[in-house]
Amino acid sequence: MQSVLDLEVLNELVEIMGDDMAMLLNSYFSDSQNKLDQLAKMDWQTEQETIFRMAHALKGSSRNLGIVGFSDMCESIESQARANNLSQNDFDLSALNQHFKAACAELRERYL
């Protein structure tokens, strides 16, 4: 299976966080799940400002954890929403969730 993670980033992160890596991952999992759940309730047409902030946050934390594909998707949503230019096509929550789950699974397997 091909990795969905940037292992170089993660190796450095392990070095930084040491024993707190698990705490960081768990905090990331619950924060991000939270945000994804909120995104699911958003109206893509009227709440683009909030969607922009959510996607921005998800992108930021995911990139720090080397989750490449998922953070790229978040970034694309972020930039469309920021310009108030989001289309239903862009706002593909099932693809987003799928990427998130895959990343979480691999992170769990490698670091927990």
């Binding site: 992160l13 707190d20 905090s27 990331y28 946050a57 930021g60 934390s61």
Partner: peptide, 9 residues
């Protein structure tokens, strides 16, 4: 920083 992950790192 409101982002827990970033703040922690």
């Amino acid at each position: 920083d409101d982002n827990n992950t970033e703040r922690l790192i």
